[in-house]
Design a protein around this nucleic acid. Structure first.
Lengths: 186, 186
DNA sequence: GGCTATTCTTGGACTCAGCCCAGTATTACA
DNA sequence: TGTAATACTGGGCTGAGTCCAAGAATAGCC
């Protein structure tokens, strides 16, 4: 299994110092085969998160029209995240500091933020009858995706003993839903 | 000038098909010299935006303590953005579709979103007396940076005849400030 | 069983970004 | 004018990502 091999090597040698060659070799497969399963080395870090975003894209359109848009996004997000246990942390998040790869992992993680934003924007645009590249739609989807990312990040950083991810997530939603004006009181 | 050479080549051959070698050559300089001025090829796309973020980092701490945090961020952002005319568009944003490089430019652009978020998070953390990796701080800074990015993106997309960037920016701020709940009405 | 089509895997070769280093030119400054 | 700092250069290297064409395995069908 490529993922397992990679996880081992990342811990042993850090992400940056692990080559695709090595990962493939440990998995008993050729370098080219690696690219049959992952388009990029960094994809290995975000398997969990990518799956969560895929699920979000599936869950979102299921929302009943009676449910307000924002509530629909929140419910879908929380539903996706609810059954993510302590064990199912994205590789990148668990070992971020261990691996000394903050810079490289961050960039690939941001691509996920963007994809999630796209998914949300599609939904918002449809529900609001606006274009996908409308300022309201884009601002809202970017803000939401950013807040969701923050929840993931803080949850992962809290390590052992943390509360379930869904707690962090609903807190993040509250912050952007009610408005930063009221959330940011000194 | 490396920037000018790059701008020409990107239009001629697209960003992806332009090599650093070519850019350096057209600028009458060696490949290695390129790296004395830019750490990465994609940095060329974001010179304007990088400068704006630098200025934001300078402007933010100047805010008087009496000004509420969020207002401080808004004022600093608007001040930085106010004197960005129609001509001073980041390369990536102007020629995104011309160059057919949405994927590649997006990733490097996201790094700017992250850096801006860091700058804002530092300020928020200081003002709120919280840690930089606090959930409230991170959610807010990510959301704000996302909204700011949206403003840039829509402004750039609107092309000739658009209103000043600062208009888009204050609209984006309004959306996240008052809360998505009230902003996203169907 | 055998035959075929499709999918999986592989080796090999290639481009290019990014990094490092050591030597040389250029400029600045005394 | 001499010296020190800075800018530029050539050369060489690693590793990600891409492409292609050939080989292995597998599933389906008769």
């Amino acid at each position: 299994m490529l993922e397992d091999a990679a996880a081992e090597l990342f811990v042993e040698n850090t992400y940056a110092l692990t080559t695709i060659e090595q990962i493939a070799q440990r998995a008993g497969v050729s370098r080219n085969t690696f690219f049959n399963y992952f388009a990029a080395k960094s994809d290995l870090l975000w398997v969990e998160l990518d799956a969560a975003i895929d699920r979000l894209a599936v869950e979102l359109p299921k929302a009943p029209d009676e449910l307000p848009v924002l509530a629909a996004v929140r419910e879908a997000t929380l539903r996706v995240v609810r059954d993510i246990g302590v064990d199912r942390v994205p590789l990148a998040l668990t070992q971020d500091d261990v691996m000394g790869t903050r810079e490289e992992t961050r960039n690939s993680g941001l691509a996920r933020l963007a994809r999630r934003s796209d998914v949300i924007a599609d939904f918002l645009a449809r529900r609001l009858g606006r274009r996908t590249d409308d300022l309201l739609v884009l601002s809202a989807s970017n803000a939401l995706s950013g807040a969701i990312s923050a929840a993931w990040a803080v949850w992962a950083r809290d390590g052992i003993g943390r509360r379930p991810l869904v707690d962090y997530m609903s807190q993040s939603f509250a912050i952007v839903s009610s408005g930063l004006e009221s959330a940011l009181v000194e």
